[in-house]
Simulated scan of single mutants.
Amino acid sequence: MAGLLGLYAKAGLTGFLRDGKGSLPTSEYRREAVLVDREHLAQYNKVCGFGLRDELPVTYPHILAFPMQIELMTQRDFPFALPGLVHIANSITVSGPLRLGEPFDLRVHAVDLREHERGKQFDVISEATVDGAVVWRDVSTYLRKGGGSGSPAAGERAEPPRPSAVWQVPSDIGRRYGEVSGDRNPIHLHPLTAKAFGFPTAIAHGMWSKARCVAALEGRLPEAYTVSARFKLPVLLPAKVGFSAQATEQGWQFALHDLRTGKPHLSGEAVSS
């Protein structure tokens, strides 16, 4: 986590060297025998709304893999500059629980560079393995804007679902999540640094929004499932948001929207696997 500040500095200083051409690197990053720190897990659970348990929240290993993702995306052979990449979706599949005190291995690699109507997209795959078997798999999809085929025709905006709960998202949630996750992107930390990147104020992390939604479903999800989220409009801090969840035959559908304007922040689903 401590090395992330240096990686962000490296990304800012070397971004101009990347032209967006070429293929994704084939390198894979690994950490072996990862053990979770109890205090750090408790801090993460508090920030995201999870209960205090020995079982790791499904989104928690993402922040352990995140420094490896950044290391991968700041190497010289990576085609895109880190500043400007947009995290547009995340899908996590678990086949069983990971627990505090039980070591596991982590590995990260990038795959599937492909076209997007607004540019190019690719996936960063993070996996946790126990005795060689994958027990947790995270697919983070990133978009590099520019040179795409153009946005598809926009349809009428659907009415937001009736909220199951209303959440007050404080202005410091970006700093608090950044502290526990290591993701100290300036757009999340302070209104002034966010304005430098074109945002009117600081915005919440997409993975905090997803974790907060999953926390609201805690105790109602099976042992093996896939939880996916598509990140839409950013949550401008502070905010009042509506969370909605509806049971389906396969699991749950959930969403997050701005309570005042009805604009969508996130849509997702959790289905048995």
Score class of each variant (00 low, 15 high):
W208V: 10
D183C: 05
T248M: 12
D112M: 03
L5V: 04
Y60T: 04
H40V: 03
L24K: 03
D172A: 12
F199Q: 09
A211S: 15
V166Y: 02
S126H: 00
L233V: 14
E127Q: 15
H40Y: 01
P170H: 09
L106W: 01
K240N: 06
Y44A: 04
G96Y: 09
L5I: 01
A239D: 14
G242R: 10
S91D: 13
T261Y: 06
S228M: 10
A204P: 05
S164I: 01
R260W: 02
M207H: 10
S272R: 15
R212S: 14
E269C: 13
E269D: 12
D258L: 11
T226N: 09
A196D: 01
P97K: 11
L143G: 08
A194Q: 09
R175A: 14
R31F: 00
G96S: 15
R114C: 07
H205E: 07
T74R: 11
K240P: 00
Q121P: 00
G219Y: 06
G101D: 10
G242Q: 13
G51F: 02
Y177L: 01
Y29C: 00
G49K: 13
G96E: 15
V169N: 11
H190A: 12
S209I: 08
Y44N: 06
H109V: 00
E71M: 04
P238W: 11
P200C: 00
V111A: 11
P170I: 07
A245H: 12
F50M: 02
R212E: 10
L217C: 08
G6E: 02
E32M: 01
H205L: 05
R99V: 08
E55W: 01
R220K: 14
Y60K: 03
I63C: 02
Y142L: 15
Q168A: 12
D172I: 07
L13E: 03
A165I: 08
R162M: 09
D19Y: 00
A154Y: 03
S171L: 01
L64S: 05
A255G: 15
L237D: 12
K120P: 01
V235I: 15
P160V: 10
G15C: 06
P160E: 07
W136Y: 04
I88W: 04
G101C: 08
A215R: 11
D77R: 10
F243C: 04
S181G: 05
S273G: 13
F199K: 08
R220F: 04
K240I: 11
H190P: 04
G3M: 07
S273N: 12
P25F: 03
P79Y: 06
Y29I: 05
A65T: 02
G84R: 03
P57F: 04
H109F: 14
D77N: 12
R53V: 05
Q250M: 11
L56N: 08
K195M: 14
Y142R: 05
Y29L: 14
L5Y: 03
T261I: 06
V271Q: 14
F66W: 14
E159P: 07
S27M: 02
D258K: 12
I92V: 15
K21V: 02
P163I: 04
Y60S: 04
S95L: 03
L24I: 03
P160W: 03
I92C: 11
M73K: 07
R30P: 00
V139C: 10
S272I: 11
A153M: 09
H257N: 08
G101A: 09
